[in-house]
């Protein structure tokens, strides 16, 4: 069974936010009004943050940036607390989000130490014609809803490792009667990365690029001490 994982090389990342926006267009995250944005209600599943740009930091040090999708923790605090299993960890290690079931209690959002979960404060909307660019893909099952399908108001959403792309790749492989090949399933943010800083693959496969990079000396995980065991792995700068 595959264990999907992403590696992000911070040495190559140039904080361009291409990943953020690729994710938006792939996954139909709505634009919020400037007033909403001021409240921090933007919906970018993969945000890029400046670190120590502000006053009070060490002047001589160069600024740093962090790009942050969901960590797809192997021990995910979000999953533990969800009362209705609207978020759950799948067989292949992806932490799913079921929009049809979520009751919007936001327990997961406060439990996730990485702040990667986003709540639909209002029903998403697109102004005059912009909705035409929405991605029609959606993952369905037993009346449940995942993937880029438009989310209703009041539910939580987050990075899914572009789960629908996995389904697509798998459907293609199945149609051709074969196993899914490495490189066939690539999330949108990985595909677009301008610095070629993002890698994706199967941690279970020792030959995959992510397995190999995860062994590098530079490899680390965010909040390793929290014991969440992220499958999104970073490589240090320098």
């Amino acid at each position: 069974m595959a264990r999907w994982s992403m590696v992000i090389d911070l040495d190559k990342c140039v904080a361009c936010q291409g990943c953020s926006i690729a994710c938006r267009f792939e996954n139909n995250t709505p634009i919020v009004s400037p007033e909403e944005a001021e409240l921090g209600r933007e919906m970018l599943w993969n945000e890029v943050f400046p670190l120590r740009a502000e006053e009070g930091d060490i002047a001589s040090e160069q600024s740093r940036f962090l790009t942050r999708p969901c960590m797809h923790c192997e021990n995910p605090p979000c999953v533990k607390v969800c009362p209705v299993q609207a978020t759950f960890i799948g067989d292949e290690g992806i932490v799913h989000q079921n929009y049809a079931r979520c009751i919007g209690c936001r327990f997961c959002t406060v439990a996730c130490p990485y702040g990667v979960r986003y709540f639909n404060w209002y029903a998403p909307s697109w102004e005059e014609g912009l909705e035409q660019h929405l991605n029609p893909d959606r993952v369905m099952g037993n009346g449940d809803l995942e993937g880029p399908a438009i989310r209703p108001r009041g539910v939580v959403e987050k990075c899914t490792y572009c789960i629908h792309r996995l389904h697509k790749a798998r459907a293609r492989a199945e149609a051709e009667g074969r196993e899914i090949r490495s490189g066939e399933y690539v999330p949108a943010c990985v595909q677009t990365c301008t610095g070629k800083a993002r890698f994706f693959g199967d941690l279970e496969d020792p030959n995959s690029i992510v397995s190999q990079l995860s062994q590098e000396r530079r490899a680390f995980r965010l909040l390793e001490e929290a014991g969440t065991r992220p499958k999104t792995i970073y490589l240090e700068e320098g």
Binding site: Q85, I103, C105, N120
Partner: peptide
């Protein structure tokens, strides 16, 4: 406080006792 109070019964339909909630 719920985003979807209309789904409050999901707490019973799908309730998961691992959740402190």
């Amino acid at each position: 406080d719920m985003g979807r109070p209309d789904r409050v019964l999901n707490m019973i339909r799908y309730g998961r006792f691992q959740s402190p909630l």
